[in-house]
Design a protein around this nucleic acid. Structure first.
Lengths: 185, 185
DNA sequence: GTCTATAAGATGATAGAC
DNA sequence: GTCTATCATCTTATAGAC
């Protein structure tokens, strides 16, 4: 097995387990078992479990916006793109079996002392908010709300829709969030 | 120490630690240390750590709506009451130092196999949603959205505002959520 | 009902051989 | 770089004395 493949394998298995079971409920033992690698190999590629968590967040963040950009590309107007963000998350929500946002989950269970972890969570949310804000500024919307307020409203509808979806194991909330967005835009 | 006081002491300490540090990061050892009781005393009052978690959720759920009812009592119209829910959560958010919703946090870190835990989280959210729905039905709002859609929108604005507040350690999102609610009502 | 002592296993991480 | 063996510590939970 090539050197880099071991690292990838570890990160893949850890990513799946961190998301499915939660970070704190996933032990090093389970990761090395399912990745079929030796205990010390993990520590050869990652200094600690926390470093593995940071690598997971960075990789997921990168992929997340790559997929979003691809998904939004076919849409032309800012309004269409904004509504497509809801569709993007609806699709992901279903694909991920309503287990919620990778970053919010970690934010809810990580120790408050893990400053770097919270910085990555914040950066992820900030970037989505900025993406929405840029599109709102370009969009010719109904002016029911100011640009700043509309940006926050759309962002909060998405965030609320995802967390509520993970509680109800349903996409109903996020679908209604999109309908509300349509009424506001 | 009276028998019931021991139980209360355990539950008080556990509640604080579960919320501040997270459930999975709080060990039985820390609970018995800080409650200054014996190891076996805890298991005399609670069958397991999971039972202690369930007691924490039930107690918090009860207190939550008791405090909400008290807070809403002085307000007369449904519209005022709906907006007061935002103020209620803004006040709590500040008081709790932006650590987020007790129930969403547990929902994010609990094992998926803990069916009873998720049922309580869901019941808590469901009751808030119903409370909002009842007030929306009574309110004479602007009819920008249907009653059902307005109910969900207000609920999602609250949920999004709390989780976003815990990421940014700020009440700005929830304040904007309230302003959006005012525009929609 | 409360206590101390202890069980049996899991935790994250490291040492040293190959 | 990968391996096995092992470390010290922490985990939830129980047994048995008072």
């Amino acid at each position: 097995m090539r050197e880099s493949n071991v690292r990838d394998k570890i990160l893949d298995v850890a990513s799946r387990l961190f998301y499915d079971q939660g970070y704190n409920l996933t032990g090093i033992n389970q990761i090395i078992d399912e990745a079929e690698i030796a205990r010390a190999s993990l520590y050869n590629h990652f200094e600690s479990k926390t470093e593995l968590l940071l690598a997971y967040l960075e990789k997921t963040h990168h992929q997340w916006f790559e997929e979003l950009d691809e998904f939004l590309a076919p849409f032309t107007t800012p309004r269409e793109k904004l509504l497509a963000i809801f569709d993007f998350r609806l699709l992901r929500q279903q694909k991920l079996k309503y287990k919620g946002c990778h970053f919010s989950k970690i934010g809810a269970e990580a120790s408050q002392h893990e400053i770097k972890v919270f910085a990555l969570v914040k950066a992820h949310k900030e970037r989505l908010r900025n993406t929405i804000g840029g599109l709102v500024d370009q969009a010719k919307h109904r002016q029911l709300l100011s640009n700043e307020l509309l940006t926050d409203t759309l962002f909060l509808l998405l965030e609320g829709g995802i967390t509520t979806g993970s509680v109800y194991r349903s996409s109903q909330a996020l679908k209604n969030a999109k309908r509300a967005a349509e009424a506001l835009l």
